[in-house]
Structure formats: C-alpha cells, structure tokens
Design a protein around this nucleic acid. Structure first.
Length: 505
RNA sequence: GGCCCACUAGCUCAAUCGGUAGAGCAGCUGACUCUUAAUCAGUUGGUUGAGGGUUCAAGUCCCCCGUGGGUCACCA
C-alpha cells in the first residue's frame, strides 16, 4: 500500500478526533428531506416569511470561514447549495470543531431552515451538522467562478487526461460536465431502446464467450475455460447469433452490448466498445437506410432537443434525409478513379499508382477500394452521408446486388469523418454463404490472424430457411461522441482501457 | 508496432545560455458574523516519472526504460 501524504495523515487523525468528540465519521444511517434542487423549489414556493425546514446531504465543496460565521457549499447529485453556520446558533465550540474537523471533500448532512442571503442566494441556516463520510484524500483542487459574461471559469481544473481516466471517480467528483456526458449517454441508450421497442423489435442477449467467433473482420481476445479444457473467444460482433434468431421465428431483434476487438487503440477505437445491432426480417438495405436516419435523428432530438448538433466546430444536421451516394460515385468524384472500370485488383492497383498512391501488393480488390474510401472520401464527410454498394470480397455476409457480381447491397453511415454504422441486405442463401466462407478462408493463410473459422452451425441454421432481412450495426460510443461533442472515445467511456502501470503490476 | 510531444509540491503550472527548484489553489497558525476563486498576516510542503551517462555543476544535454497524449500503420 502506498504511504499516505502529509495532508492525508492530517485528515486521518481527524477520524479519531471526531470519534473522541462523539461523532461517527462513517455512520450507517443518513437523513435527507430535500435535494439541493428540491430545497430551492420548496423555499421559492413557500409563503413569504414562512419557515422552510430542510435536511440536506452532500459533499463539502467550498468553505469560507469568517470569524464567527462560516459559509460553505455542498454538492449533491443535482447541484450545489450554500450553507451558513453561525456561532450564535451552533455555539462557538461547535463552530470551532466544524472548522477543525471538517474538510473539503467530506460528505455531510446539515439540518436547518432556508433563507435568502443579502446577495440573494437561497441558503441553509444550519442548526445541526453530522459527518456522513470523512474524506482522507483531498480531491483535486479546482475552483470555479462565474465571469461577468456569465461564463463559467474553472481554476486549477483537474484536466490531465491520464489522471482523469485512471481516477475517474475523482474526475466525476470535481467535474460536473463529465457527469453530464454520462447522463447524456444513458439517455441516448434508453432513447435507442424506446425507438426499437416501439417498432416491434425484441431485445435479446447472445453469448459473449464464443467457441467460434465471426461477424466482423477483427482479431479476437482469447480466453480459457479450465473445466471444459476449451479456448473461448470474446465476441467481435453479435451478427451470426442474432441472425440465427430470425431462423427461429423472431422477426425483429436487437442487442446492445459489448464487443471486444484485439486491435489498435485510437481516438475512435477502444478494445471493448458498446455496439448496437438489429436485424429486421423482410427489410432490405434501402429500408434500413431510412430507418437509420429516422432512428438517429429521433434519438438526437430526444437527448439534445435538436437534430442540429455542434461537433468539433461544425454544425451537423442529422435531419433526414441524409445524403446518399454510391461508393463508386464518391471515389470517382473525390479521387478520380472509376472502380467499375477496374474489375481486378491488378488493374485497380495500376490506376492507383497513376494517381500517386502506393497500394499494397497481394491485397484484394475490395481492400483496395476500402483504402480509396478512407483516403479520398471518409475524411471529407462532415454532414451525415450514406455510402452504398460495397465490394463483395470484403462483405462475406451481405447479399449480392442483382446483375452486379462484384457488388453487394451494403451501406455505411459516415458523420464528421467517422464511420458510424454499417448495414446490409443480409445474405440468406446457404450455398452462397458457404462459398463466401470458403473464399474468405482461401484469402488468408493458416497462420494469418485475420483468417476466420468456418461457422458450420451458422450454415446449418441458414439451411432451415432464413427470411430475407436487413441488418444494422452501430458503435454506440461514437454516437455518444457526436451527441456530447467529445473529440475522443475515451471521454464517453467511463473506464477506457489504459495500460497497466509498472508500479501496479 | 513506427514517429513526434509530454511527465516538476495534493491540483494547475513556472524555472532565461547548464549555475541556490518557484507561484496560485489546497494544507497549517492567527484575525474577521452576509461570504461565494472571501479577504488580510504568517507558514509547511520537492528523490523534477525510474535508472544510467557527460559535466566543477543537470529539471535543463545524451542513453535506456515506464506511462500518457498526438499521429501513422493496423482495423471485410
């Protein structure tokens, strides 16, 4: 265990002093009659001159001691409220004890009556105080003032990202705007559920531990079941399990849960992230596209009150309809290469070299096209845009486009230079699906980690007959970034993955 | 995994050309009964991320390691 700092030792001593003074520093029971917001409301609604008694609880966030009176603010789940402790009410001895034994960060309970100070602030005139939890470690010191412009100015803000993520509890305790991000995130997820529930979707849960992983191109995390002597993979997508349910007769299903991908970490990638996937029988990718823009604009309106959101200096208008452009047209327009004129990887590679690009050798046509997409198209997309009709050889679970052997009915939604969602008319032909699995298997050598196992059971399910359906997947964290105007995924994940520190090993 | 940047008091940050490590807040002592970054006076607090090297002298220069941030690669 680490040694306590001098500040902490000092506070630790106050625990025994509190006990000696007959005050339990960590009592089991607390009382509260009002939250800070309720107290203010009660005072404002009471008749002029009436006494409004209240018992409040919260964390001590500021103390201004001035002789025989002490002003302080406590903060509860809804905000801050001021306390006034006066010697002529509490007695000089108790006021001294308060000043000696209570510190910033302590959680306390205060009983008294509400009044308005000369400066107009509704304040609790305190008649009794009890400690609810003595804080040993001081919270990171930060103070805030309100400038004359009305803008909130934070002094000595606790804003070092590493420290904030590693001690998210301290971050949340001192940065109310961080708490707000996670409130918005929670409202966003319940709005998504409401939207899908109201359209007849059934929420289900499928295995996180899987013997055969699939549904996306990603390296999995491997774990071990000791009793069964079996390696298991943490899922990289829900897709194959959810579509099995369509075979079983559920026509509309969705799942919100965690996916795990053993890949690089960046401002838009965390090793574990929250995904929404839904599958809708008898819909194709065009219908899913319409449902997508409706869902996201509805959720944005419910959560932020508008479909025009501010994100990193842009105003993004999520109001339907979103721009629709085929992948071919977008690459032709922005990159000057017509992918339809290049049916082979070789031909496309040479066209790319003419444009000064250096495509990797031994890669398939689809991956080259994907490279063109991320090079020419993705970074420039600010307003919500659907790119549609993707290469078949990077979409093994999507249904082919009639008459176009190299293209599948698939779209991705992009906003603010980020891929937000991915959807397609799902392949439901078991023979075709088996072919695709075999093609994917041939595309990688035995050693390559990207090589994916054949999912025989999934083919079995499909042979029983799967209704035609449209499927959809979206990174919830990225939507949360958008709706909370945060530049990195770490700001919208409570405990983003960080390397373990040497001194913690 | 590559490259760039950062790491100094509990928190936020200074420290000129390599020359005694400082400030604000927090803390501690005291004054003060309408304050709100309260104010005023005094004061404590440091293995400068770890280790090694160069030098009379290293927070500063070099090497190596750690952690983080950014970026690239990777990511049907």
């Amino acid at each position: 265990m680490r040694e306590l700092t001098d500040l902490e030792k000092n506070r630790q001593q106050k625990v025994s002093l509190l006990l000696a003074a007959g005050m339990d520093p960590y009592p089991a029971h607390a009382e509260r009659t009002h939250t800070s917001v309720q107290a203010r409301q009660a005072f404002e609604q009471a008749a002029e001159g009436a006494t409004v008694a209240a018992t409040l609880t919260g964390r001590l966030r500021s103390i201004r001691a001035m002789g025989k009176a002490v002003f302080a603010h406590i903060e509860d789940g809804e905000g801050q409220i001021q306390l006034l402790l006066k010697a002529d009410i509490l007695g000089k001895e108790f006021l001294d004890a308060f000043r000696n034994l209570f510190d910033l960060g302590d959680i306390l309970q205060a009983r008294g009556s509400l009044f308005r100070t000369r400066t107009g602030e509704i304040t609790l005139q305190v008649e009794h105080v009890a400690m609810l939890s003595k804080a040993i470690t001081p919270l990171p010191a930060s103070k805030e003032t309100v400038a004359e412009s009305g803008e909130r100015v934070v002094h000595s803000a606790f804003d070092n990202p590493e420290a904030r993520y590693r001690q998210r509890y301290a971050d949340l305790a001192v940065n109310p705007e961080v708490r707000e991000i996670f409130r918005v995130r929670a409202r966003m997820i319940s709005a998504l559920r409401r939207f899908l529930d109201s359209r007849g979707f059934l929420e289900v849960e499928t295995p996180v531990l899987q013997a055969v992983y699939g549904g996306a191109a990603a390296k999995p995390f491997v774990t071990r079941h000791h009793q069964l002597h079996q390696d298991l993979y943490l899922r990289i997508s829900f897709e194959l399990y959810l579509k099995r349910l369509l075979v079983g007769g559920f026509e509309r299903v969705y799942e919100i849960g965690r996916d795990f991908r053993n890949e690089g970490v960046s401002f838009k990638h965390n090793p574990e992230f929250t995904q929404l996937e839904f599958y809708m029988a008898y819909a194709d990718y065009r219908q899913i596209m319409a449902l997508t823009e409706e869902m996201i604009s509805t959720v944005a309106r419910e959560v932020t009150g508008t479909t025009k959101i501010d994100f990193r200096g842009h105003t993004i208008d999520l109001t339907p309809p979103w721009t629709r452009i085929s992948l071919r047209d977008s690459i032709l327009e922005l990159g000057g290469i017509d992918i339809d004129a290049h049916p082979t990887a070789e031909s496309l590679s040479s066209a790319m070299r003419v444009k000064g690009l250096s495509p990797k050798a031994e890669t398939n046509r689809g991956k080259l096209i994907e490279g063109l997409l991320s090079h020419f198209v993705e970074p420039g997309i600010v307003q919500p845009t659907f790119l549609f009709d993707y290469p078949r050889d990077i979409s093994p679970l999507a249904k082919g486009k009639p008459g176009q052997p190299q293209t599948v009915e698939r779209f991705e939604g992009f906003v603010a230079g980020m891929e937000l969602c991915n959807a397609f008319s799902e392949l439901n032909d078991p023979l075709d699906q088996e072919q695709r699995f075999l093609e994917m298997g041939r595309a990688y050598s035995e050693e390559e980690e990207d090589r994916h196992p054949m999912d025989e059971d999934y083919l079995n399910a499909m042979r029983y007959g799967m209704p035609p359906n449209g499927g959809f997947g979206m990174g919830i964290d990225r939507l949360a970034m958008l709706l909370t105007n945060q530049p990195t995924i770490r700001e919208v994940i409570l405990y983003p993955h960080l390397r373990q520190r040497e001194d913690e090993k």
